[in-house]
Simulated assay, not measured.
Amino acid sequence: MIRRLLYLVAGAALGGYVVHKLNRTARAWSPAGIAGRVEDQVADYRAALREFNEDVHDAVRQREAELQSRYDSERGRPALPGAPPGRSTRPSGAIDAPDMKDGT
């Protein structure tokens, strides 16, 4: 009698667990569950793209500052300490650059 009762309780517990797992799987594969997973993935991608955009923006700002400091050093203002020595930092095609069409 006790053995039968033990098997009945074990069967009920196992059955409850299986029903719980099946309901959870059914909710995960329902349209709302799929939409939730897709929404989470899109949010992750948006965050990664936002971070990439910020990194690119920072790099562009840093490069612009470097170029501006090199350009300013040609006009008599001090340059950044990272400018390579002996190399012309004057950009070609500047507004006040001499006209080199005829070699003069």
Results as ranks from 00 to 15, higher is better:
residue 80 L to G: 07
residue 45 Y to K: 07
residue 18 V to H: 06
residue 94 A to N: 06
residue 30 S to G: 09
residue 7 Y to E: 12
residue 84 P to F: 00
residue 50 R to V: 04
residue 24 R to F: 10
residue 33 G to A: 12
residue 50 R to W: 03
residue 41 Q to I: 12
residue 100 M to L: 15
residue 15 G to T: 06
residue 9 V to F: 06
residue 34 I to K: 15
residue 63 R to C: 13
residue 88 S to F: 01
residue 30 S to W: 05
residue 25 T to D: 10
residue 16 G to E: 03
residue 89 T to V: 14
residue 103 G to R: 01
residue 7 Y to T: 12
residue 47 A to W: 11
residue 5 L to R: 14
residue 12 A to L: 03
residue 76 G to E: 01
residue 71 Y to K: 14
residue 76 G to H: 06
residue 18 V to P: 03
residue 7 Y to D: 10
residue 53 N to A: 15
residue 90 R to H: 09
residue 86 G to C: 04
residue 51 E to V: 08
residue 73 S to C: 02
residue 98 P to N: 01
residue 38 V to G: 04
residue 44 D to K: 15
residue 49 L to W: 09
residue 89 T to F: 05
residue 57 H to F: 12
residue 48 A to R: 00
residue 80 L to S: 12
residue 39 E to V: 01
residue 87 R to G: 03
residue 83 A to D: 05
residue 38 V to P: 02
residue 38 V to W: 02
residue 57 H to D: 11
residue 29 W to H: 14
residue 18 V to M: 10
residue 20 H to D: 09
residue 76 G to V: 02
residue 34 I to E: 15
residue 67 L to Y: 14
residue 85 P to Q: 05
residue 88 S to V: 00
residue 19 V to E: 04
residue 63 R to N: 10
residue 34 I to T: 13
residue 23 N to V: 13
residue 61 R to I: 09
residue 2 I to C: 10
residue 33 G to H: 02
residue 64 E to C: 06
residue 86 G to V: 03
residue 97 A to V: 02
residue 50 R to M: 08
residue 29 W to P: 01
residue 87 R to K: 11
residue 103 G to V: 07
residue 78 P to N: 02
residue 55 D to P: 02
residue 26 A to Q: 05
